[in-house]
Design a protein around this nucleic acid. Structure first.
Length: 228
DNA sequence: GCCCAGGGGGCTC
DNA sequence: GAGCCCCATGGG
């Protein structure tokens, strides 16, 4: 269906968005109590299931250390133990400390001053911090700073490849351009679109253990037509 | 037992 | 800049 209609990419992208929204409903991301929690969650969720991240964040809250000052004061081994459920805990403990150290050095722990930067400056700064790559930086910009940037993840790449709208090995920047060149920057749309793609990717994956087969037409709950 | 989650760094070529 | 490997929990 999607592939047969010769319409503008903007309409195509909005068609996909509407189908996902209609099927899954509003996602209201990012689940958190504060922008700082969004950032810690964004680091912890790198290649980890959100269920496990929730446990790690729950541990941080229980220990009353979910703030940059406390996290910096914690010994590495202690922090790693607290976030253990989120996998790669030693690496992520180092990443969390790197972010908090950056906040202390350049902003005297004032997160708002960092997040208030214009989008390009903020992205450049975030990418300079150890442990923050394109996806994590963009998730922080969108969900913590509330600035409209489109977040790409592996689900997005996989779904748009199955829709025959992007090659399987498309770069982060190229796939991001598909959205940013064809959609007006809109906080609500960008927020929900990424969350819905994630929801769809996760839901599809639960239907079959083999992700390569998860988005075929006959099992796609949204009615989107896939090409392979 | 096997697969894979809301990735990124470091290294090699 | 592409292609690897490493990190290393827990649920289905």
């Amino acid at each position: 269906m999607i592939k047969d209609i010769h319409i503008g990419k903007r309409i195509l992208l909005m068609n996909i968005f509407d189908r996902l929204l209609h099927h899954y409903g509003q996602q209201n991301w990012w689940p958190s109590d504060s922008p700082f929690e969004v950032i810690i969650g964004a680091i912890l969720t790198q290649s980890a299931s959100w269920r496990n991240v929730e446990k790690a964040i729950g541990n941080l809250k229980h220990m009353q250390v979910l703030d940059p000052v406390s996290l910096l004061e914690l010994p590495h081994s202690k922090l790693a133990e607290i976030i253990r459920p989120s996998i790669y805990f030693n690496t992520k403990a180092r990443k969390i400390k790197a972010f908090c150290a950056y906040l202390r050095e350049y902003y005297n722990f004032d997160l708002n001053r960092l997040l208030e930067h214009d989008l390009e400056t903020l992205r450049w700064e975030l990418l300079s911090i150890y442990g923050i790559g394109y996806e994590t930086a963009d998730a922080i910009i969108l969900y913590a700073a509330q600035q409209p940037i489109f977040v790409i993840d592996n689900y997005t790449r996989r779904i748009f490849n199955r829709l025959d709208l992007a090659p399987r090995d498309i770069s982060y920047a190229s796939l991001q351009e598909l959205f940013t060149l064809n959609l007006q920057p809109n906080l609500y749309i960008f927020n929900e679109y990424h969350a819905l793609l994630d929801q769809h990717g996760a839901a599809a994956c639960k239907k079959t253990p083999i992700c390569q087969d998860c988005c075929l037409l006959d099992i796609c709950p949204t009615g989107m037509r896939y090409t392979s």
